[in-house]
Amino acid sequence: GATAVSEWTERKTADGKTYYYNNRTLESTWEKPQELK
């Protein structure tokens, strides 16, 4: 079946920190989402 992984995108802030952005829920998080573990 379909997985939720594609909803999350790994992004970088202007100062180079990595965060994760969810295209479906429009939420962002510093922690790696469960779906990516």
Rank of each mutant, 00 (worst) to 15 (best):
S6H: 10
S28T: 15
N23A: 08
T9M: 09
A4R: 03
A14W: 10
D15L: 05
R11F: 12
R24L: 15
E31M: 08
Y20H: 02
K32D: 04
G16F: 02
Y19L: 04
K12Q: 14
E27I: 08
Y21I: 08
Y21K: 03
T29F: 06
E27W: 04
R24P: 01
T25S: 04
K32H: 04
G1A: 12
K37I: 15
L26V: 03
R24D: 08
W8D: 01
N23C: 08
D15Q: 08
P33G: 02
T13V: 02
T18P: 06
K32V: 10
T13P: 01
V5L: 12
Y21S: 03
L36C: 07
N22F: 00
L36K: 04
T29L: 07
Y19S: 02
W30P: 05
K17S: 07
G16S: 02
E27N: 04
G16W: 01
E31N: 09
E7W: 06
L26K: 15
G1V: 12
G16V: 00
T3S: 12
T3G: 13
Y21M: 04
W30L: 07
D15R: 04
T3Q: 12
G1D: 12
E35W: 05
A2F: 14
N22Q: 00
W8R: 00
K32Y: 07
T3F: 10
A2M: 14
P33H: 02
T25R: 01
R24W: 11
E31Y: 10
R11P: 00
A4G: 12
R11T: 05
E27H: 05
K32W: 05
L36E: 06
N23R: 09
S28K: 11
T18M: 05
S28N: 05
L26E: 15
V5N: 12
E31R: 07
N22L: 00
S28A: 11
E27Y: 04
V5Y: 11
L36S: 06
T9I: 13
L36A: 05
K37R: 10
V5C: 07
P33Y: 02
V5K: 06
L26A: 12
D15G: 08
V5M: 13
K17A: 08
G1I: 14
L36W: 10
A2E: 13
R11W: 09
T25Y: 02
Y20V: 00
E10L: 06
D15A: 07
T25A: 01
E7Q: 07
K12F: 10
A2T: 12
D15P: 00
A14T: 11
K32Q: 08
E35T: 07
E27R: 04
R24S: 11
A2G: 14
N22A: 00
K12S: 08
N22M: 00
N23P: 09
P33A: 02
N23K: 09
K32G: 03
T25F: 02
T29M: 09
R24E: 08
G16L: 02
G1W: 11
Y21L: 04
K37L: 15
W30Q: 05
K37N: 13
K37W: 15
P33V: 03
Y21W: 10
S6T: 10
G1C: 05
Y19H: 03
D15K: 05
K32L: 10
G16T: 00
K32A: 07
N22P: 01
T25H: 01
T3W: 10
T29D: 03
R11N: 05
A4P: 13
T18H: 04
W30F: 15
L26R: 11
K17P: 01
K37P: 10
W8E: 00
A14E: 12
W8P: 00
E10W: 03
A14G: 08
K17W: 06
N22R: 00
L36T: 05
T25G: 01
K17M: 09
E10I: 10
K37F: 13
T25P: 01
R24F: 14
K12M: 14
